[in-house]
């Protein structure tokens, strides 16, 4: 078995009653790299992660984690992975943050003193020292996520699974979480991360797998995928609606060859661009023409746009929200 591969999923199939959650999903996480699994609600991301973390058995297919088969050597797998699940944090709300981490440490066979020291170290790292001796029940959503992540890192896992680590966090907290993920990767850990945001996958992942309805519809490097799904969009909203015509003219000058201008919302103009410097040029030209703007942004395509390009159909959230509560 190759030691360069941290996680390998090979034709995973899983059904729940009449829902086919996975229909033969395959992907790899190279050692020390980040794989982003991108897909809308109900795509099968959580199911795949739970299979890899030995919490669910696949109906068919094989998966190895750190070289061990999840079906036949689950204990070896569990020794080497950390899991941060989606939705509710896997922590005990009636214990303090410190007690949670010490308990996990002791369950990982750390000696009492070691578990204590490790807990203190993690609390410090995740900025929870001040709240360490409060019941986790009193923690905010962001603090719970951090404690949950700290818990999954307690045993210095080789591989970490992060299931939608930033869903529901506000943008500032999201960036903090990204920094933490980069930090983890910087220490040599392999990461499998699921997300509904192309931006997040793009910011963190080396490779991206796009899944929908339990099937892989693209598997590529972040760079190539962006090239395939089209580039970024430049979006401008002039303060004075009467300057719309001038704005369009400037945008046409910056857009990709043959690109046309869209109006995503009334009074707002957008155009696909290929040049990363387009934003800077836009700022300069708008200033030159004395056009004041209330909004100016460079956006990656939304997940919906990615799907549209890859499959020609709009992603349907697969009526997953209701059953998600029960499953995740």
């Amino acid at each position: 078995m190759s030691t360069d591969i941290a996680v390998e999923a090979d034709g995973l199939v899983k059904s729940f009653k009449d829902t086919k959650a996975l229909k033969g999903v395959s992907f790899q996480v190279p050692r020390g790299k980040v794989l982003g699994v991108l897909g809308p609600n109900g795509a099968g991301k959580t199911t795949a992660v739970r299979i890899l973390a030995t919490l669910l058995r696949p109906d068919a297919g094989r998966a190895t984690v750190a070289g061990f088969d999840v079906a036949t050597q689950p204990r070896e797998v569990r020794k080497r992975v950390g899991l941060t699940g989606q939705q509710y944090a896997s922590i005990d709300e009636e214990l303090t943050g410190r007690e949670n981490l010490r308990m996990i440490g002791e369950l990982l066979n750390m000696r009492s003193a070691t578990a204590k020291a490790r807990a203190a170290e993690l609390l410090e790292w995740f900025d929870l020292t001040d709240a360490a001796d409060r019941n986790a029940k009193t923690y905010s959503g962001g603090m719970r996520r951090r404690l949950d992540l700290a818990a999954s890192l307690t045993g210095h896992p080789e591989i970490v699974f992060l299931d939608e680590p930033t869903t529901g966090l506000d943008p500032a907290k999201r960036e903090d979480m990204w920094d933490v993920v980069r930090d983890i990767v910087g220490r040599g850990t392999s990461v499998l991360l699921t997300t509904q945001y192309l931006e997040e996958a793009d910011a963190l992942a080396d490779d991206i797998v796009v899944i929908n309805h339990g099937e892989v519809i693209a598997h590529d490097t972040s760079e190539n995928l962006k090239r395939v799904v089209g580039s970024q969009t430049l979006r401008v909203r002039p303060a004075d609606a009467a300057r719309g015509g001038d704005v369009k003219e400037i945008l046409l000058g910056l857009g990709a060859d043959g690109a046309t201008i869209g109006e995503p919302r009334p009074g707002e103009f957008a155009i696909p661009v290929t040049d990363d410097a387009a934003l800077g040029h836009a700022v300069a030209r708008l200033a030159q023409a004395h056009i004041e703007v209330t909004e100016l942004s460079l956006l990656l395509p939304s997940l919906d746009e990615v799907f549209f390009t890859l499959t020609g159909e709009r992603s349907k959230p697969a009526a997953a929200e209701a059953s998600e509560e029960a499953s995740a």
């Binding site: 204990r75 569990r78 899991l83 896997s90 922590i91 709300e93």
Partner: peptide, 12 residues
């Protein structure tokens, strides 16, 4: 809650 998932994912 999620805590049993945590236990199940540990090598215990």
């Amino acid at each position: 809650k999620g805590i049993f998932d945590r236990f199940r994912a540990l090598p215990i």
